[in-house]
Amino acid sequence: MGRFLIVDGSSMLVTSYYGLLPKQILFAKTEEEKEAYYDKIMQYKGQYTNAMYTMTKTLRKLEKEQQITHMVICFDTTRDTFRREEYPLYKANRGSTPLPLKQQFINMENMLREIGYAVETSDSYEADDLAGSAAFMYESRMPTYIITKDHDYLQLISENTFLWLIQTKQEAADDITKRYASVFCDQTKFNLPDKAALITPEICRAEYGVDPSMIPDLKGIVGDSSDNIPGVKGVSSAAAPLLKEYGSIDGVYEAIDSCKNDKEIKALSSFWKEALGIKRTPVNALIRDRDMAFLSRRLATIKRDVPLSHSFEQMSLDRLSEGKRVEQYKKYGFKTI
Rank of each mutant, 00 (worst) to 15 (best):
Y37L: 11
M142S: 08
Q170S: 14
L156W: 03
S248A: 10
S269C: 15
V232A: 00
T56V: 02
D318S: 12
P98R: 13
K29Q: 15
I203M: 15
R288M: 14
T15W: 08
D39W: 13
M108I: 03
E65I: 01
L320M: 10
G209W: 04
E274W: 10
F105W: 01
T77P: 01
C204W: 04
G209N: 09
R280Q: 13
S124D: 12
H70K: 12
R325D: 13
I337C: 04
K40N: 05
Y38G: 09
E120I: 00
K260W: 05
K102W: 09
L276W: 05
D262T: 11
R288S: 13
R60A: 14
Y145I: 04
G231Y: 11
T97H: 05
I265V: 11
S16T: 08
Q314C: 00
E86F: 09
F294V: 02
A240M: 06
E63T: 01
P193Q: 09
N284L: 11
C185M: 08
K335W: 13
E245C: 11
D194C: 05
G251V: 04
R319N: 15
D152H: 12
Q47K: 15
K91C: 02
R141N: 14
E32A: 06
S269P: 06
A127D: 13
F184R: 06
Q47W: 04
I147L: 01
R60S: 13
K40E: 14
I41K: 11
R280Y: 08
P230G: 11
